[in-house]
Design a protein around this nucleic acid. Structure first.
Lengths: 261, 261
DNA sequence: AACTAAGTTCCATTATACGGAACAATAATA
DNA sequence: TATTATTGTTCCGTATAATGGAACTTAGTT
């Protein structure tokens, strides 16, 4: 459990516990959760019971293991469809991926991290769930940097403070200063590059998706490997990418919920 | 909101509201939710606020619209990976789909309904999220019937009582009696057929997935269209299907959580 | 200006969650 | 077998948070 921020209300605590399970990433016993938790024994116990009753957690009495429940999958399906821009963006993502023949990612900013909400791989048919819902660092991914470049000072400050600046590779930017510098460049160019900053051999070009009013909606990226392409190669896709991003942004603007029943 | 069952505790209510949003299926205004809700104005208002704070809902002040938040997508990714059998089943689902050249579905039973947790389409690369997390009726789908056939009396009773028995097509089974009859046949044959009971032109063969101890884990199905195949054609896949289901079941049994950190 | 309708705040009441401590159940050690 | 840890569960008086009726805003109509 994130021991820093104290959450108010029972609901907050319950969701906090769910988060903990998500970050543990595998089924866990009561004591294990307790150790990681900021809540006292009894309280946590009751929370787990409640969540299990509500089927947000499932409990295996055999193994005495709690794990995240399938009800979440169900809810998420609805969330993905109605609240992310994935459904709107889908045709454009498809088209872009087809055009350039490379992998395309669609992401949003969520709590200082990058949340991938869609992925299209022109060649291999892929397993979406294994990508959608996945999170990644913002400071060393193309989509992350592209989005950060669009934040106004206050929001940017907050997001930067949430970055770990862990050095994944020798190309990773590891300080807020470097970051700010990089963001200026990105603002100028209109696109961000990931120069093997997160994973060796993986490079990408990314662009922010803005609504007409200028509100940041997410980001779009084209990913490839150093083996197959150079950064300069990727730069050639800039117009295609910006075009797709613009189209999605415009569409998202228009997208007004099916008016009244 | 499901007005029948009264939920205890604040957490239950909050999740209840989330469910409501999922079933509305699109962003909604306060009053709209209120109308559908069993909770009084103020209570609902506070619930929405709490959920928004926790980012389980997102609120657009512009439009005064609430919608399911992306945080759910994040949680669901973890849920899908750790609590459903999808990751275990994946290679077998892949193989089966490849073998028979048709669409394969993986499903679990969730609250009397069928919850699809994976799908593989040998030909067209597909959008997974549009399937995983999707729900369907149990009484008129192959996977649903296959799973129901494996329930012991008490559980079956409950599930049957949750069925609407809506007549989707002229082939839909529309009564508990017919259902029980059908389940006997399925038990004998070991597989269930969907003879255009849910959608016209869509037929499938499905098998339950059981753990070695005999616990029902889910179901697996091969789907096609009447235009391309007959039920008899599908019956030819029976061995392949049962084989895959058995392998998944066995694997799931072995699958013991990565022991201790 | 008067009237609706939708959304928000107030506040005394009540129900719920809280958590320390004591209690089981099981496993580990002597 | 007795003894001590370890882990999971229940009790219960207390403290806190949720409740919901009513009143108040705000914005849109007549």
């Amino acid at each position: 459990m994130s021991k820093e921020k104290s959450v108010s209300g029972t609901v907050g605590k319950a969701l906090d516990v769910l988060n903990e399970f998500a970050s543990i990433g595998r089924p866990a016993r009561f004591s294990e959760v307790l150790a990681a938790s900021k809540y006292p024994k009894t309280t946590l116990y009751r929370l787990l019971q409640t969540l299990t009753n509500e089927e947000m957690l499932s409990y295996d009495p055999e193994e005495q293991m709690y794990s995240l429940g399938v009800r979440l999958v169900r809810l998420a399906h609805a969330a993905w469809e109605q609240s992310s821009m994935a459904p709107i963006a889908r045709p454009f993502v498809d088209a872009l991926s087809h055009e350039v023949g490379l992998t395309v990612h669609l992401a949003q900013l969520d709590g200082g991290q990058v949340l991938y909400i869609d992925k299209r791989n022109s060649s291999a048919p892929i397993q979406m769930y294994s990508q959608a819902g996945k999170i990644g660092p913002a400071y060393c991914t193309g989509v992350g940097k592209a989005m950060m470049a669009c934040l106004e000072e206050e929001a940017l400050e907050r997001v930067i403070s949430q970055q770990s600046f862990h050095r994944y590779t020798e190309h990773t930017l590891t300080s807020a200063q470097d970051m700010r510098q990089e963001l200026l460049t990105i603002k100028e160019e209109g696109v961000a590059f990931d120069r093997e900053e997160h994973e060796h051999n993986i490079i990408c070009i990314a662009a922010p998706i803005l609504s007409l009013k200028g509100k940041l909606m997410g980001a779009l990226s084209i990913t490839t490997t150093r083996h197959r392409h150079s950064i300069d190669d990727l730069a050639l896709f800039k117009d295609h990418l910006l075009d797709a991003a613009k189209q999605i942004g415009d569409e998202a603007e228009v997208w007004h919920f099916p008016d009244k029943l």
